[in-house]
Structure formats: C-alpha cells, structure tokens
C-alpha cells in the first residue's frame, strides 16, 4: 500500500503521518506526505487532513497547482479510498459557510455551518456558556462518545457506539442525504461525527489524536477495500 497524505500547508501533517505509521506497523505500507499532485497517481489511499478555517484550507488546497484536479481524478475518477480529517472532511461538502460562502469539493451533499447548539438537559450543564444560558461552549473541544450508525461502516469495524474520540471544531457538517452520515455525537443535540459514501469517508474528529480508538480507525481505513 502507498498512503499519500496531502500537504497543502494546513494542519499537523506530522502527527497524521506518525499515526498512520503506527497503525500500519504490521504491514508493508509506505506513508508519505506530499504536495505533488503526481504523487496521487501512485497512491493506493489518500488522506486529506486540515485544521483551521474552511476558507483558508480551501485557499491552501487551491494554492497547490493541479491538486484539486488530481484529487478529483484519483478519488472520484479512479475510486481510491479517501479519508478526510476535520476540515479535510468539511472540504468534501458542497458549501462552506465560515467567513463567507465558499465552494467545497462537492463530494458530499451538504454544507458547513456554525455549531449553534442549545442544551436544555441538566446533564450537560457543565458545557453551557453559563448556567442561565442554554448555549454550549464553542468550540466543541474534547472527547465525546460516538454513536455509530448501523450497519457499521467498515472504518468503524470493532469501534462500537460509546467509544470516545477527540474533537475540536466550531463548525459542523449538515448532510442532505441521511445515508451519508455514518456516526454522530451528542453536543447539545446530534452532530455528524463521520460521513461516508462509496470510496470516501471523512471524520470530524481527529483519529490521529484519539489514542487506541483513532489508531483502530486508521487501521480499518487501510484495510478497507471499497
């Protein structure tokens, strides 16, 4: 296998690369971080990380000449397994509404909007802005337990509902097609934790920062043959 982590100036690529190396430790897998669109031709698996704002990440991606086209060809054209992480997942959506309206890759029918959750239940009150407010703290930051949709997507093999993963985001994806949602979390109501369709998956959380559960998801992704 030949995993290419796309470098477009966003995010902590080193952490992602190290997590993939660890998760793939038993197999003959090459992990590379590359800003060269041509590298996607030889890739067996493609990973798009991303932290920060949607627009900045989109701009960064567009700043790498030929990368968007190479992604389209490898992921949509050739059907290579693809994993988007955090803003990398959000970029899969049609539209991003963070600091203006921006076009995403358009692989998932949906848009990226601010989390404006309200929490009326007592159990959550520690995450309220204040006790007399029903608004929750933003960003959604920390470990939250997954609700994996049935039947579990192959990347969630062995990762049951209730397992915790690490989130840090102020914006969320709203999917038009419910079937694209493969896991959710509860933060003042349900938030999409992961999306999947055909050969593409995306996680709002950071598998590379989610200890054993995250490494398991990465290993599952590497084993996935969509």
């Amino acid at each position: 296998m030949n995993v290419v982590i796309v470098d477009y100036g966003s995010g902590n690529l080193r952490s992602a690369a190290k997590a993939f190396e660890r998760a793939a430790a038993d197999t003959a897998t090459a992990i590379s971080v590359s800003a060269d669109p041509k590298a996607l031709k030889a890739a067996s698996h493609i990973v798009l990380p991303g932290v920060g704002a949607f627009a900045d990440c989109k701009r960064g991606l567009e700043g790498v000449a030929g990368m968007t086209e190479a992604l389209e060809e490898a992921v949509i054209g050739e059907g290579k397994p693809f994993l988007g992480i955090c803003v990398g997942m959000q970029l899969m959506a049609k539209t991003g509404r963070e600091h203006g309206v921006h076009q995403g890759l358009g692989w998932i029918e949906g848009e990226i909007v601010p989390i404006e959750a309200r929490d009326t239940s007592l159990v959550h009150q520690v995450f309220r802005v204040a006790l007399d407010s029903e608004k929750v703290k933003i960003p959604h930051m920390g470990w939250n337990d997954l609700e994996v949709r049935d039947p579990p997507h192959p990347v969630f093999a062995g990762i049951e509902t209730g397992r915790h993963v690490y989130f840090v985001h102020g914006y969320r994806i709203l999917c038009e097609r419910p079937g694209d949602v493969i896991a959710e979390v509860d933060y003042g109501g349900p938030l999409v934790a992961a999306v999947g369709r055909d050969n593409i998956v995306g996680t709002q959380f950071h598998p590379e920062k989610s200890q054993a559960t995250g490494l398991q998801l990465i290993a599952n992704f590497l084993d996935w043959r969509p």
């Binding site: 959550h124 920390g142 470990w143 933060y187």
Partner: peptide
C-alpha cells in the same frame, strides 16, 4: 456527550 478533560 462531551466529557470534561483532565490535563496533566
């Protein structure tokens, strides 16, 4: 739900 964090 989200959990509180313990940070050493």
């Amino acid at each position: 739900m989200l959990k509180i964090r313990i940070i050493p």
